[in-house]
Every structure is written in C-alpha cells, then in structure tokens.
Simulated assay, not measured.
Amino acid sequence: MTAPYPHPTQAVVLAGGQGSRLRPYTDDRPKPMVEIPGTGTPIIGHQLAWLASEGVTDAVVSCGHLAEVLQDWLSQAQLPLNVTTVVETEPLGRGGGLKYAAASLPRPEEPWYATNGDIWTRFSLREMADFHHERGADATLALARPRIPWGVVETDEFGHVLDFIEAPPSPYLINAGVYVFSAAFTGLLPARGDHERTTFPRLARERRLAGFPLPHGAYWRAIDTAKDLTEAAKELGSRGV
C-alpha cells in the first residue's frame, strides 16, 4: 500500500503589485492591503486565513510597492500561520521574483503552493495537490472560467435574436493565479524574467505542466478594479464567502 501524498505546508504569496487600476485605494497601500468592503480585513488577510485552513503552516510574502505598509500590518495582525516577508530590491520579473521568494521557504526539499496577492478564492488546495501528484507534474496551475463583464446576445442561424444573457461564464479557461509546485520547480525558474514565457511553455511541451479546473461552484475573483471590490462585497453578503 502506497503512503498518502504529503500535502504542501508552505506557500509563497506574491504581494508586490502597485494596483494602479485600484486607485485611489492603492495611493497609500499595496494592492493586497486593500480591504474587501464590510469585512474589516485586507485581501491578503483572507488569503492567509484560507492557506492556513488548507494546512499551510509557513508562508513567504513577497513585497514590493509600499512594502513597509504590508510588513507593518503583518507584524501586528493575529495570523494563523508563520509569515516571513522578502522585498525585491530591484525588479526581477514574475519568474525571478517567485524564485527569490521561494529561496526563503523553510523546507526547500518539499512541494509548495503559490498565489497571486490580488486573488480572493475558496476551494480545496489539498484536492489540487492530489491532482498535481497524480499527474507527476512539476507545476500545476488552477484554471478559472471568469464571467464576461458584458451581456451577450444569442442568435439563431438566421440572425434572429433569441435571448440576452447577462454576464455569462467565459467559454475559455484562464490562469487563476494559484499554483502547486514540486520542490524541483524552484530550480527551473529564471533568476530574472517571466516564467510564464519561459518555464511554463517548456514544461507544457514536456507534459510536466498540469491544469486544475476549479470545482463547480468554487468562489474565485481577481481584485483589479474598484468594481471588483464592490462585486466581491455583494458576493460576500449573498454567499457567505
């Protein structure tokens, strides 16, 4: 009988974005420090609580824009897991920044999760880790099907309008900004540059990159604009996310 796959207990949170489209909220704080209205908690607080509920005991938070604001909050907050912060002193790109943060993980010989700092989601990371392990992947990315921000018009083959559908799900899957990585993946990252243009395409060609579709009904939202904040607050009230 094979031993059960040990789920990751460490994670990197990429929290260095400027969030220019969220101004004026981000004039005095980094994007992950923006509060979801009505919760009293910034985006990163929700993320860390979710990671802890999924068995993560140690997180490395990669800071950039207004890093001291985020570091001050982390030092004073009652956190459910151990948090270390790192700050990029020079731009390294997405892949380089991920590699730099991963160097501070407490158990480099073990797999790890990563998440973008502007994502608010809830689904089973353990199920995603099992999916990753079953496929023998070096990297697995969560895949979301976001809602199209416009209403669409459905027609028949003769051009007759049949229906108007408000904000339907996209027919395409997108990178949801949540990942499971093998221990070896860290060594595949570039010291500088974008891993989504280098490492990921290479792994895809070698069939070592997997995509985990978010389970039906799972909550996922990227917080990019003020409208996203408003919608997230509405969803919080209706779904109890």
Rank of each mutant, 00 (worst) to 15 (best):
F200S: 07
T39R: 10
Q71S: 03
T89Y: 07
G55L: 08
G193I: 06
L236V: 11
E68S: 13
R208T: 09
I165Y: 03
R21Q: 09
H7Y: 09
E154K: 14
E157M: 11
H132L: 07
P30M: 05
A142F: 04
A137W: 07
A144P: 00
A102K: 05
A15V: 04
L98A: 05
A176F: 04
R135H: 14
T225W: 06
F212A: 07
R94Q: 12
L229P: 10
R208V: 10
T198Y: 00
R29V: 14
G211I: 02
G17Y: 01
E35C: 13
L74Q: 06
T198C: 02
E88W: 04
T89K: 14
V34R: 09
E110Q: 15
T199D: 11
A11I: 01
E127M: 04
R135L: 14
M1E: 10
R192N: 13
R126M: 00
P146L: 06
G38E: 12
F181I: 00
G240N: 04
E109G: 11
A59L: 02
Q10P: 07
P213H: 03
L203H: 11
G55H: 08
N82Y: 01
D27C: 01
E235T: 08
G17S: 15
G17D: 14
L79S: 07
W50P: 05
F158L: 12
R239H: 10
P4A: 15
L203W: 09
V34H: 08
R122P: 00
H65I: 01
L188H: 13
E134N: 08
E206D: 15
A222S: 13
G136E: 08
L22R: 06
H160Y: 11
R202G: 12
D224F: 08
V56Q: 02
P6R: 14
A77V: 09
A103R: 15
W220V: 08
P171S: 03
E88K: 12
V56Y: 01
N116A: 14
T230H: 14
V56S: 02
T155H: 09
T85E: 00
T57F: 00
H7I: 15
L92H: 09
S170M: 06
E235C: 06
P108D: 02
R29A: 15
H160G: 12
T121G: 01
G159C: 09
Q76D: 14
V13A: 12
